[in-house]
């Protein structure tokens, strides 16, 4: 089991499982090769690196740096043809009903939209997603089967 923490990107091959716990407004983006059983997962916190006020940051933090970084590693380093990559997404919830306390309005929804925009640029299809709504998620991606298991409190598990 490989754990992907906040703002991290991790890669794994069969038979490894990529896991991230307690996703709220963050989005987990998984890019994978079905035939090579290889995947990269990013735990994206924010939509746009233009928001950053730090000189350096982990590329996994922002949608517009995380997706290009996963694509770079999978296509340049691992030599996987770009056109064979697929994506699955989970997360992007709004955890608080009264959101007025947060200046980052609808951050979950914006994270999902920003990740999709990046995937669209690389023409990587989103084959499945379980995003939005108002609950936390723990997810596990099986590099062998390409299945993404999503667990939420008192909602059981969903496989996409």
């Amino acid at each position: 089991m490989i754990h992907v923490g906040l703002a991290e990107i991790k890669f794994a091959e069969e038979p490894e499982i990529l896991r991230t716990m307690g996703l709220g407004s963050c989005v987990a983006a998984i890019l994978y090769s079905e035939s090579k059983h290889l995947a990269g997962m990013a735990h994206v916190m924010l939509p746009d690196s233009g928001l950053a006020r730090t000189k350096t940051f982990p590329p996994g933090k922002f949608a517009d740096t995380a997706i290009p970084e996963i694509v770079r590693v999978l296509t340049d380093e691992r030599r996987i043809p770009l056109c064979t990559l697929k994506a699955k997404l989970a997360g992007g919830a709004e955890m608080f009903q009264l959101n007025r306390s947060f200046p980052l309005v609808s951050i979950g929804e914006r994270n999902v939209a920003a990740v999709k925009e990046q995937l669209n640029k690389f023409q990587i299809p989103v084959v499945a997603e379980e995003t939005g709504k108002d609950y936390g998620r723990t997810i596990e991606f099986d590099t062998g089967s390409g299945e993404l298991v999503i667990r939420a409190i008192s909602r059981g598990k969903i496989i996409i």
Binding site: L6, A7, M21, G22, L23, G24, S25, C26, M45, L46, F57, K61, A93, M95, F96, F102, P103, L104, I107, G108, Y135, G136, R137, T138, I153
Partner: peptide, 14 residues
């Protein structure tokens, strides 16, 4: 889940 509840604030601080 605790992680999910803290996520938005952590994103803002990050």
């Amino acid at each position: 889940m605790q992680g999910a509840i803290f996520g938005e604030v952590l994103a803002e601080l990050s």
